[in-house]
């Protein structure tokens, strides 16, 4: 297991696209170090030759028929958009 002090809060917050305050950074670093320290005991489990479990029951690919069916009307799909214009979501300029 990696050492719990490895958690670089600035890097992880950037990966998670979360703007944290200095206070949150300090608090989470300390609390999560404790949680990660607790989890180090997982290193004691013998997992050699053990397959990972992603779901409790084996699930295979589920295929759907390639058939058109009604979806959400545009007004409903956009009803929760923070900003919209001409049936589109408005966002800050992405490309200069």
């Amino acid at each position: 297991m990696a050492a719990s002090s490895d958690l670089n809060i600035d890097h992880v917050a950037q990966l998670a696209r979360l703007a944290l305050t200095p206070r949150e950074k300090a608090e989470f670093s300390q609390q999560l170090a404790e949680v990660l320290h607790h989890s180090e005991q997982l290193g004691k489990a013998d997992v050699s030759m053990i397959e990972p479990t992603a779901h409790a029951f084996p699930i295979f690919n589920i295929w759907g028929g390639d058939e058109p069916r009604p979806g959400l009307p545009v007004e409903q799909a956009l009803q929760n958009a923070p900003q919209q214009r001409l049936n589109m979501v408005v966002v800050p300029r992405v490309v200069e």
Binding site: A16, L18, F28, P52
Partner: peptide, 29 residues
């Protein structure tokens, strides 16, 4: 926020095998 940070960390490059993959194997046990 705390859980997003923890979850992002255990999935991040360099830590995935040590945390997430190992946890999935222990889940099998």
């Amino acid at each position: 926020k705390r859980r997003i940070i923890l979850g992002t960390y255990v999935l991040s490059s360099g830590y995935y095998d040590a945390y997430y993959l190992r946890a999935q194997k222990v889940r099998t046990l």
